[in-house]
Design a protein around this nucleic acid. Structure first.
Length: 249
DNA sequence: TACGTCGACGACATTACGTCA
DNA sequence: GTTGACGTAATGTCGTCGACG
């Protein structure tokens, strides 16, 4: 039996840095990938980039443009317009956010840092659905895609980025659960097989003790049935598997 | 060419908030 | 109204890579 799993092989960084080249797509052991396929693992665009958000439903965007910002059905406040009070003082990430293209993250946060604690918003169903669709297309985003999505959903680019990060983490967690289940089943099967072989070994030993002369007979051979892989002597096979009996005929 | 630095980004662990039973 | 569990948005940290001097 072949355990076609990669859990044990996974390095501390299961997603290799190949994704840095924007090739998009999870790095899963081939066998795992074959067992559980995600539609977005295949790059329909060939070059692995170029998410065309315009292909997706525009319903949300249209609604947003009208100013009727979509809000969570469970939230009384618009999910976009809530404050984002963030504690970002002197942290490595905070510094990085103030540099280069990432400055946009900080700039649009600056006017929202009044509070001392961060406010967590919940994305609306429409936003989540839209992001989900995008994720199915590509599980990573290049800056352009990120900006386009953010604009379309009226979110901050950072929010889109975080959503994708969390989504990848959730996907991986699910995959790990699936793999664990599979391994469990494999383990059970192997345990059963091991029990059966142990039993068979005991029977053979018993046979050897009870019929020492027979076993030492030069004409006696142990054969393994290619069909059920049971080991048996020519004589014992008469009481063993039917395949052996057929072979003897 | 080798090397150090920097910015960007992803994974991962963790925190904190919103929701619901 | 309170509480604990759960889902998830957000944060912090680390490692890696490519660009650049």
């Amino acid at each position: 039996m072949e355990l076609a799993l990669s859990l044990g092989e996974q390095p501390s960084k299961p997603f290799p840095k190949s994704s840095r080249s924007r090739d998009l797509g999870f790095c899963m052991a081939p066998a795992v990938e074959n067992r559980v396929r995600f539609p977005w693992l295949t790059d329909n665009h060939g070059d692995g980039r170029g998410l065309d958000v315009n292909r997706l439903s525009l319903a949300v965007a249209e609604e947003s443009e009208e100013g009727a910002v979509v809000s969570s059905p469970n939230s009384a406040v618009s999910s976009f317009q809530m404050d984002f009070g963030r504690i970002r003082n002197g942290s490595k990430r905070g510094k990085r956010d103030l540099k280069g293209a990432e400055a946009e993250r900080a700039s649009d946060d600056d006017d929202e840092l009044n509070g001392s604690t961060r406010k967590k918003l919940r994305l609306s169903k429409e936003q989540s659905a839209f992001l989900e669709e995008s994720f199915k297309e590509h599980n990573t985003l290049n800056p352009k895609q990120k900006l386009a999505l953010a604009k379309q959903l009226n979110l901050r680019p950072r929010q889109v980025e975080v959503w994708f990060q969390n989504r990848r983490a959730r996907t991986k967690l699910k995959q790990t659960e699936v793999d664990c289940e599979y391994l469990k089943r494999c383990c059970e099967t192997l345990t059963e097989e091991n029990k059966r072989l142990q039993k068979e070994l005991q029977e053979l030993r018993a046979l050897k003790i009870s019929q020492p002369f027979y076993m030492h007979s030069p004409t006696t051979t142990l054969t393994m049935c290619p069909s059920c892989e049971r080991v048996a002597t020519a004589k014992a096979s008469a009481a063993g598997c039917q395949h052996q009996r057929l072979l003897l005929l």
